[in-house]
Amino acid sequence: MNKKKFITLIVSIALIIIFLHYKGVSNKVEGKLQQTTSPIGVVLSEFSAKIKFYYSLVTHIGQLQSENNELKKTNNELQSKIAELDEDKRENDNLKKLLRFSEDSKVNWIPADISAFDSSNIRQAVTINKGSKDGIKEGSSVISEGFLIGKVIELRENSAMVLLVIDPTSSIPVTVQGTLASGLVKGQIGFGLTLENVPQGEKISKGDIILTSGLGGEFPRGLIIGKIEEVLNKDNGIFQQAEVRPAADFKILKQVLIVN
């Protein structure tokens, strides 16, 4: 076969593959390929997470010591709060019984491992090794260590793509814990988050916890996203802005939970 015909053949095959993808015909084959490489991806992702964990352990040993002391102090405070909450729970249970409240929790948690990271330098997305076969739905919230990390944007039979909250295109309706302030948390280029659209009248300050508001129904209410690191107040602006530190550690993502 001469060179021109050979090039035409390969380019035609490429166009057919792309066409079949957008027609949805090749989804099963693509799923199978991803399923085959997924175990290797999971092992490698776990391995890299371990390297990063030990690296940060070595580089932050001094900081860890002071953090440890701080955590001990916080732990003591939390212990006393738990005792208070236990009491509140008992009271709450009694009240529920009195009101005949039906506890109908249909929340389904599906654990999954990260098998791949998006190769783009700007987009922040990961692939997980569970898909529609395991009951995952498009739009489901994804949690790591108790904190919201993203949502499912693309679904295959045995895998799913998760758009992380730190992606520049991500935008989540939120509230600030302990206040009436609400706004939008948006992903930033370079692994950060910003809180936007908070009306000037609302009082927000450093250390405030950001929770999902549940507006729009895309994410359940009350999932922790992060903490306010710095309030960027402009006197002439209608809205306030703040830098938010994500609660989840995106550098060592390994296992996640999908909320259905």
Partner: peptide, 14 residues
Amino acid sequence: VATIQNSLFESFKH
């Protein structure tokens, strides 16, 4: 190579 790139290397992209 594509799998290693997308799992091991890309996880260090920060």
